[in-house]
């Protein structure tokens, strides 16, 4: 008995690990299609929200997909994907808003979001971050309404006409081209600023190509 303890411990640990991982695997396979559909619905809901497409708040995945297919047209220019919103009663040759996927590295992991611009491609219509694993209460605040709503109506051009954007420390004077950062979450704010600026620059460079 005494001699066998090491062996017994190893066998027990191995079996426990096997049984546990096997059952998690089975649960994962079972729930994967559903949780993926939920994630997709979350994404669609955020796109429709920034574009200001009317959607009922309890619309399911299928309904969202239907609305998305009906009103949103996808246009690819270079490496950018523009999601244009053509409302039913509007004219069919110019969109009323344009959304672009916005994502990049945050402090702890990838941040996914969406940036919506007015048809002039200069004014921000809205911004949403819907997938992130930043520190709850600090960097995680990027998903709050107060942070996201600051962007509405801001310009992607500085006062001298250079494309870019600034997320500044709280207390600094804001202009049409900057918003307040999150206190205690400088690392997240800086990284968000970086990938937002990257997107803004490439949109600005692609604007004549897009207009064609």
């Amino acid at each position: 008995m005494q001699k066998n303890t090491n062996f017994r411990t190893i066998v027990f640990a191995t079996l426990l690990g096997l049984v546990s991982s096997l059952s998690l695997f089975l649960v994962y396979v079972q729930t994967k299609p559903l949780s993926e559909a939920n994630e997709r619905a979350e994404e669609l809901r955020n796109y429709l929200f920034v574009l200001d497409v009317p959607v009922s708040s309890n619309a399911g995945a299928e309904e969202l997909l239907k609305i998305f297919d009906r009103f949103i047209r996808v246009k690819k220019v270079d490496s950018l994907t523009f999601y244009e919103y053509y409302p039913e009663n509007g004219s069919s040759d110019s969109p009323v808003a344009v959304a672009l996927p916005l994502s990049g590295p945050g402090l702890w992991g990838r941040i996914d979001g969406v940036l919506a611009l007015e048809p002039d491609l200069k004014t921000i219509k809205g911004i949403r971050f819907y997938k992130q694993i930043e520190t709850p209460g600090l960097g995680g605040e990027i998903t709050t309404d107060w942070f996201q709503s600051q962007f509405v109506g801001k310009s992607i051009l500085s006062s001298s006409g250079v494309p870019g954007f600034r997320i500044v420390k709280q207390g600094e004077v804001l202009d049409k081209n900057s918003v307040d950062g999150i206190s205690g979450a400088t690392m997240t704010s800086d990284r968000v600023e970086k990938f937002l600026v990257d997107l803004i620059k490439s949109v600005w460079n692609a604007r004549s190509e897009y207009a064609r």
């Binding site: 059952s23 998690l24 649960v27 994962y28 729930t31 559903l34 949780s35 939920n38």
Partner: peptide
Amino acid sequence: IVFDQFLKAY
């Protein structure tokens, strides 16, 4: 983890 997956799915 089982419970978490269940919430994510349903």
